[in-house]
């Protein structure tokens, strides 16, 4: 057996990368086009469509809203999800099996249905403000990811380590922060990124919960496409991509992304 991968294998791998990268190349190309309509390959190079994003106030506002909702929703989901995942794993034997499934339900229900249900129960039912409804909706759709990812991390955590710390005189709550949390840090970071990106890109749930004056970026993109056919949508998409990459880069710089290689 030779150490070098088979040529066919290299070919397939190259194809996979091509399929993954090509749409990105096309979007970036279209965003740079000087024309007033979407086209690829770009004709003439210009950044004016990027500039256009910030000239349209709806885009400016929705970018801010989207970031606020994604950040707050993710943080709230972590606050609920980390203790939930801990309890589900720590007391796996004592707790009924269906309890874990409960936290996955929001992704099992079609998002359209989920969004409609939230509209009926939250916005219409209680008359909650739009921003609050959006925040609750996004928290709920990212919660399953948070619980699943952190659960996966906790599944390999040996709880006798926690017991050892407690037996050495560390109070249980303190032990959670000094012993348990540092050992599932990778899971928490992964959950944060996944939840943040899921929230930032969500369309179906936001579609129902946005209202007059408050919208998210993906919804604004949809609204824009319905009326215009200029490359602004491509530039916004590129911007969204860069935002995502930026978040991952910041996390990578501050906390380390090595766990993704595991």
């Amino acid at each position: 057996m030779s150490d070098r991968p088979h040529p066919v294998l290299i070919g397939i791998a190259a194809l996979v990368y091509l399929f993954l990268m090509l749409p990105l190349v096309i979007v970036v190309g279209a965003a740079l086009s000087d024309t007033t309509y979407l086209t690829f390959p770009p004709q003439g190079l210009s950044l004016r469509w990027f500039q256009n994003i910030f000239e349209i106030s709806a885009f400016r506002r929705t970018i801010v809203t989207s970031l606020q909702i994604a950040l707050l929703g993710t943080l709230i989901a972590l606050l609920i999800g980390i203790p939930a995942a801990y309890a589900l794993n720590r007391f796996r034997i004592e707790l009924p099996k269906w309890l874990g499934t409960l936290f996955v339900l929001p992704i099992l229900v079609p998002e359209i249905v989920f969004g409609f249900a939230l509209l009926k129960s939250l916005t219409v039912g209680t008359g909650a403000p739009i921003f609050l409804s959006l925040l609750i909706g996004h928290t709920l759709i990212v919660l399953p990811y948070v619980v699943r990812v952190i659960s996966a991390s906790l599944a390999s955590f040996d709880f006798s380590i926690e017991e050892a710390a407690i037996s050495l005189g560390s109070a249980p709550v303190k032990t959670f922060f000094t012993i348990v949390l540092p050992n599932v840090r990778a899971g928490v970071i992964a959950a944060f990124i996944l939840a943040f990106i899921t929230s930032l890109n969500d369309v179906s749930v936001s579609l129902f919960l946005t209202g007059p004056g408050i919208s998210t970026l993906p919804i604004q993109i949809l609204a824009h496409v319905e009326q215009f056919f200029d490359p602004t949508v491509a530039s916004v998409s590129v911007l969204l991509m860069f935002l995502t990459v930026a978040v991952m880069a910041i996390v990578e710089r501050t906390l380390g992304l090595t766990f993704l290689a595991k």
Binding site: D158, I161, E163, A164, S167, S170, A171, P172, T175
Partner: peptide, 14 residues
């Protein structure tokens, strides 16, 4: 437990 002052050695070292 944390007030019992007992030294514990576990099977999987912990």
């Amino acid at each position: 437990t944390h007030k019992r002052d007992i030294g514990l050695v576990f099977q999987n070292y912990a």
